[in-house]
Design a protein around this nucleic acid. Structure first.
Lengths: 120, 120
DNA sequence: ATAATATATGAATAATTGCTCATATGAACA
DNA sequence: TGTTCATATGAGCAATTATTCATATATTAT
């Protein structure tokens, strides 16, 4: 059952058509905005934020990260998976041990800007 | 029931103590990282991303945004509330109509960096 | 005062998600 | 080959969340 247009918008007399047209013109494509939300979703968890921040400093194995953050190996491994899928980290294998490091140059800038916001 | 330390960390022989100490030293305070995750959580929804991007261009009333995004007034109002709580938008009232605009200079930079990541 | 209308909000619900637990995989070594 | 250990992963659960629906609030106009 689809909604009729009138049911989901306010009265036409109040809508600022010119503004809406101008804004619509400048909006990035739907898909980009969706992907952008997906990226920020990855940053929207304090465990992943901590992992990423730790990797700013040095590559680390899963075990190190679990110890550093006082969390289970499994929890870290699950989160690393999310970071990997977002192409934010890369792996280097050495025997049994897998070392992870950051695979992106934008992340640090994004984080610094974010901190600027919360610290003002 | 709390876990014993040994149950939540890997074997001590594999942990890279020096790396962990160095990283721990450089990590921002726990609370900052938590707040940072909270900020990114706000960005981690495509409806809110669209609202913010629209506001880059012009202030708009709730009604305009609902029309632009083809969503219900209620849905937009709920999301605007989230943005307001994160101190990302500010309101200007004119009669019955409430105009929202961006209340932050960092957001645009954060978004641009984010797009750079997904577009590479 | 009453009606109309822009916005806000509480309750309910469906979907998503972060973690735990158990177990699988894969590499080193006895 | 069998054991050990680092990492990965599937299932399940509790918590969070985005939206809808119904309704409240606030302002303007009649």
């Amino acid at each position: 059952m689809t909604l009729k247009r009138d049911e989901i918008r306010c009265e036409a007399s109040i809508i600022h058509e010119e503004v809406i047209d101008k804004v619509r013109e400048k909006m990035p494509p739907e898909e980009s905005l969706y992907d952008l939300a997906e990226l920020f979703k990855v940053f929207g968890d304090s465990t992943r934020i901590k992992i990423i921040w730790a990797l700013f400093e040095s590559e680390m194995c899963v075990c190190d990260i679990a110890y550093l953050l006082n969390m289970s190996q499994s929890a870290i491994s699950h989160q690393i998976r999310v970071l990997k899928q977002a192409r934010l980290v890369k792996r280097r294998k050495e025997g049994k041990v897998v070392y992870y490091s950051l695979d992106d140059k934008h992340v640090e800038l994004i984080f610094k800007q974010g901190l600027s916001h919360i610290n003002e």
